[in-house]
Amino acid sequence: MPRLELVATLEGHQDRVWQASWHPSKTILATCSGDKTVRLWAPASHSNFTHWQCIDTLDGAHKRTIRSVAWSPTGNELATASFDATTGIWESDGQGRDWECVATLEGHENEIKSVAWSGSGSLLATCSRDKSVWIWEVEADNDFECLSVLQEHSQDVKMVAWHPQQEILASASYDDTIKIWKEDEDDWYCADTLEGHTSTVWALDFDATGDHIVSASDDQTLRIWKMYKPNNSEGVATPNGEAVWKTICTLSGYHERCIYSVSWSKVNGFIASASGDNAIRVFAKDESSQDPNAPTYTSIADVQDAHGVHDINGVAWFPTSAHGDWLASVGDDGLVRIWRLVLDD
């Protein structure tokens, strides 16, 4: 049986840890916390991955919890979203050292819940308890211009995530829906609303192709959504000439409490989820399921009490094949853990 093997436990945060985010290419992990800091972690040596150390602590820029941290696609910048209603932009000296907060983006009325860079690095999205999603254009000299303020969610927006290749944004909300946002001649608009979850949608992630989304909810289920473009061969109606997203699989009966985070590996296609029931689970698509419109997914590995008795708030797969089997998790215990997915021999 496949299993998750604990590689390392990283101690240092002084409060619950909310999110983990891997550098796009290096073995560096960024984590953010209620202690108002971001910590950067790296293995102590290039050959021994069981010993990790905190290589930098980014602090002083936020007055309240840092809820979300995201690397730019080059890995030269970090964005931090805080309950203090600002987004911080951090830049390093080029050696990956001496991070400095070079810009602060203001505008949201209250807590910012999530921040994400587009695949090209030219756009940044933020979302807030003020129910809005903001899209920012990244300009030269650490200048950011707000292109759009999207106000169609009726409640707190929990997370934003970009399509891996295209400038398509997805947002997940306390209003139980996911919305898909696209641009049409400088105007951003809601292209689809994904309904099905019966409580807060806390997290979502695209697969490597960007044709599928997995979402995680307080309703204790994960849903897998597929995009159907106009004139699709399946005959799914696309009334507005827009692609529509439909649930093709619901994973229920696995987690016993709210699912706070989900990560879809771009390397091997595995889905990892983290829950308030203290467990991490890994799901794989059944090889036997041939119908692309009704796939089945099976839980192939799990760790109960992965952070002891504490909620697990975030999971993130390593983004490249260099360490595609690595999974980072963060919890209410203030700890960061690195796991390795060990498949059958």
């Binding site: 309950f83 306390y174 307080d218």
Partner: peptide, 12 residues
């Protein structure tokens, strides 16, 4: 009920 059991909003 939803607000009281949303730990992120409680934390905020």
């Amino acid at each position: 009920n939803k607000q009281l059991n949303d730990k992120e909003r409680v934390a905020a």
